[in-house]
Design a protein around this nucleic acid. Structure first.
Lengths: 142, 142
DNA sequence: ACCTTTCCGAGTATTTTGGTCGGGTTCGGA
DNA sequence: TCCGAACCCGACCAAAATACTCGGAAAGGT
């Protein structure tokens, strides 16, 4: 049930960029220092964040990365899905990457896994980058 | 965020044994057939279930496995923790296997991971083997 | 005795994870 | 125009976890 380092690092990077919003672009090295992630690895991750439209970049000196969208529009659940794969604990209940299972019909576990998937998604899909910055989690908002 | 096969198989086995309750002992081969898990692998898992007190066994002919405790007393969250490790998505918010992190203080992600841990635990620790058998999940009970 | 069945430690192939590396491209400035 | 800063991007790699298999030893029943 762990979340891997890729997802964690991606969110850390997005948080740094969100705080830096409005300023000039931030180079890889700058982000890397702040979040304690090896620069070459972080580069891979930023590339994917860029491909998914969260981030834009500029090359050359004074180049770097910056947020492309408003923190309010970055849904944490989506970021995690795109960097880690489905939130569902088992393939048989995944909406985004369903995998069949021979025991599936009549399986007494399936409803449980579906419930777990829903509760996790309920949290992560209702949290945005802005919420993280301001410390407003779903619980507090209800 | 996946649950591994060990946990899944353990729960499948417990469900089979729970349905068989009161009857004679069920041999490895019988369980293995019903839940479609390779017998030697399942054996490992049953051994761990036994060590944790969920199951008892008898050797020799007419031997096999049987549930040691009432299905009502088997908490799914505990089974998962014992076979898969902590429910927390990150070491820094794990109650059962805490791991320090250099960014920890002031980390904006920590509260989110703690919330995820709590919501997952809220579901799995409120569900018992009996609930699975009767299809009564936490959602339905509230 | 002998067969059945669990016990249990060791080995192993595959996949995932968490990176590194090297060369290319693009930009800005001297 | 040349140089260095910075991103782009595919390939590679080592360690760990996963999902098993195997080979005996021990115990129970007949």
């Amino acid at each position: 049930m762990k979340v891997s380092s890729r997802g964690e690092y991606a969110l850390r990077a997005l948080l740094v960029l969100a705080r830096n919003r409005g300023e000039e672009m931030m180079p890889l090295s700058g982000i890397s220092e702040q979040i304690l992630v090896p620069a070459p690895y972080l580069e891979q991750i930023l590339l994917r964040l860029k491909q998914h439209g969260y981030v834009k970049s500029k090359r050359g000196s004074n180049g770097g990365y910056t947020l492309r969208v408003r923190p309010k529009d970055v849904v944490i659940g989506e970021v995690v899905r795109q960097l880690e794969g489905p939130l569902a604990p088992m393939g048989c209940v995944s909406l985004t990457a369903y995998e069949a299972c021979p025991l599936e019909e009549g399986c007494l576990l399936k409803p449980l896994w579906a419930l777990v998937r829903d509760t996790v998604a309920h949290v992560l899909d209702r949290t945005t980058l802005e919420d993280l910055l301001t410390g407003k989690l779903p619980e507090n908002r209800c």
